[in-house]
Amino acid sequence: MGLQEEVELLRNIPLFAKIEPSKLKLLAFTSERLTYSEQEILFEQGDVGDSAYIIIGGEADIVVNTPGGPLVVATLKQNEIVGEIAILCDVPRTATVRAKTELTTLRITKDLFFSLVIEFPQIAVEIMRELAHRLEQTTTRLREAVAEAQG
C-alpha cells in the first residue's frame, strides 16, 4: 500500500476527517506501519502507553481483565483508532488490545502525535471535537442508564 492510499484511509477516520490532505500525508509518512499476526498483543492493560494505533486492516479485540478473567469488551475494525487515551492523559493502558485476525496498523508514537497537535492546531481542534462528541455520547448513555435504573 502506498502513501496515497494511507492518506485516503486516514481521511475516513473521523478524527482526521477534516484535516487537510498534506498534513495527513505527513502523518502517514512519519508513522510506522506494523503487521501483527493473529493473537499477537499490541499492548497489555497496565503498560505505559507510548503510541496510538490506527487499524488499517483486520480486526482487534479489546480485552479487559476482570476478576472473572479476561473479557472481550469490544472489537475494533478498519479505520478505528485505539490507544489514544493513554497517550493523551498519560495513564496506563486501560485495556489489552490483541489482534483478532492478521492485523495491520499505523503506529503513531506519542511524540509524533503531540508534535502534530502542537504543530497543527486544527488537529487539536478536531480531537477536542471528537472527544467532546464522545463525552456527549457517554453522558447521553449515562442519562439513559440512570433513567432506566430509576424507572
Binding site: S22, K25, L26, F29, T30, D111, S115, E119
Partner: peptide, 15 residues
C-alpha cells in the same frame, strides 16, 4: 510538500 511547513530544526527532519 511534507516538511516545508515545519519549523527548521524540527525533530521530524532528522527522523
Amino acid at each position: 510538500e511534507l516538511f516545508a511547513d515545519l519549523p527548521p530544526g524540527h525533530e521530524f527532519f532528522e527522523q
